[in-house]
Design a protein around this nucleic acid. Sequence first.
DNA 1: TCCCTTTTACTCAGTTTGAGTATATGTGGA
DNA 2: TCCACATATACTCAAACTGAGTAAAAGGGA
Lengths: 300, 300
Amino acid sequence: MKDALAHAELIAVLTAVTNDEPRVMTVSKGEALPSGPFEVEHRSLQAGLREWVNEQTGHPLGYLEQLYTFADRDRAPNNKARRTISISYLGLVREQAAPGAGAPGWHGWYEYFPWEDHRDGRPAALAAIAEALNAWAVSDPSRRDHRQKRVELSLGLNGAAWNEELALQRYELMFEAGLVTEAGAPDEAETGRPMFADHRRILATAITRLRAKIKYRPVVFELMPESFTLSHLQHTVEALAGLALHKPNFRRLIDQQELIEETGEMSSETGGRPAKLYRYRRAILEEHALSSTRLPLSRN
Amino acid sequence: MKDALAHAELIAVLTAVTNDEPRVMTVSKGEALPSGPFEVEHRSLQAGLREWVNEQTGHPLGYLEQLYTFADRDRAPNNKARRTISISYLGLVREQAAPGAGAPGWHGWYEYFPWEDHRDGRPAALAAIAEALNAWAVSDPSRRDHRQKRVELSLGLNGAAWNEELALQRYELMFEAGLVTEAGAPDEAETGRPMFADHRRILATAITRLRAKIKYRPVVFELMPESFTLSHLQHTVEALAGLALHKPNFRRLIDQQELIEETGEMSSETGGRPAKLYRYRRAILEEHALSSTRLPLSRN
DNA sequence: TCCCTTTTACTCAGTTTGAGTATATGTGGA
DNA sequence: TCCACATATACTCAAACTGAGTAAAAGGGA
């Protein structure tokens, strides 16, 4: 094999949900995701990441999964002769004060992606975005139809439904159309706050991944405290999905899965009728293999 | 950032389904997956991979997605001072004669994972594997219960259902128990054919990913010829999933989704009543955004 | 002609889902 | 003290979807 050397870097997208807002751990006053070099001493990529996240932020790190590996030539100001490979990870944590070396801070997802929060209906920002994207689509007659379809489907226009899992697709579309490149643009309220290099794209990747994952694996509980009410759980899921859910059906869904059990305690924090407190049944992971099917199996 | 240099390598898992058998493109007589260095000239990881797959195998490459990035210290015989980072990709192709430079060849998935093919019921190999894993579980009294649960769920023992998506989990379990390390073991019929370094684990990763993906995204069609019968389509899905499907329900599922349309032609290759030929409606991808929900949405 | 094989077309009960309504149980103010 | 108010919790019901199975159609070949 030819000698192909590259810089190797690890990037962490640490997410928590605090006060029903999804947040991401950042450095540089919210301008960048925490990252560090992958060194020879590290046993594995995961181990390397855990090590310096712990060092830089002191934040305990539970769930961790690999997200994606980036290495495009033009993704960042760079040494031309040598590439940087960035391996990103998604981590789920319960937010704590974390006085680490890198002056870490938490920022809401929707600072960076204002158009992604549909809990109170379609955000106002979407109208302007849709208009700008349409202008972009029309600007190239040869690709117009195809582009318009993409815009329609991504943004949920003309009868198409909003699909919260398309967060990355939407960001890439806006990027392609030149709506999100410039830092410090005047319309950040609409196009969201920029980040260093391609960190915002990485965050979009994480959002898409997590929004997909909460549907078929009980990862939300990594973000919940030891005991919680059903409403709290629902609001956490809603925060991640950026969608409002139907309360009775959410409850039914949860107890069908038998993922949680009552603690016996009650909480009366919310003003109305006191709510039962629940805890996650870790054992469930070992009992049911978390069925998956969706294929029309045949038994015999 | 500290200077952290590493070798960067790209590994391809190219899969096709031929004669109702899922196959993978290999080099070295089936002992390794095709791989090559990631070079400075490459525009991106994907581009780099496409380039030398084309060079080495001449095989046209349609669908391609990133699989996983590996860099464990002890994954391969290696220069101690310098790590190798391997970025793996999953590609789906229609198999063709491919006279490339690396003497490429196709081998069936189930040569490497005989226990994964359940189309004709539980493979005989599973009994011995279950026994060996149980012995391993019992061998450590302190972790016995936990290990036994893992074995049960992974292999579908004691009333647990077989879950085809756990292919990687099963391989890792067997690896941990020392059942699959040695090359050229006498019992390859049971524990499968080994591969170079961790290539077999990468293949297991690909299988798991693809088995999950066929359920919610119409990727099967990347493996199908221009026109095909419903049975052919079903057999292809069955080959990948390693499961037998219920014919009437499979058909219903397919035409609910409106993914295909009749060509008007018929095929009488199969001996019985001639079957209608269908083609994939590419347009569908642009029409429906391929809904995903599974969350109890609230409309208002 | 009739049997064999495979495709295609229905049926039907049981379960899951979307949507909405009704009842309980606290708090705080009149 | 009692009544609004805000939640929490509990049902209901029709429509859609699934699992499982049966029946009819249409070729080829003995």
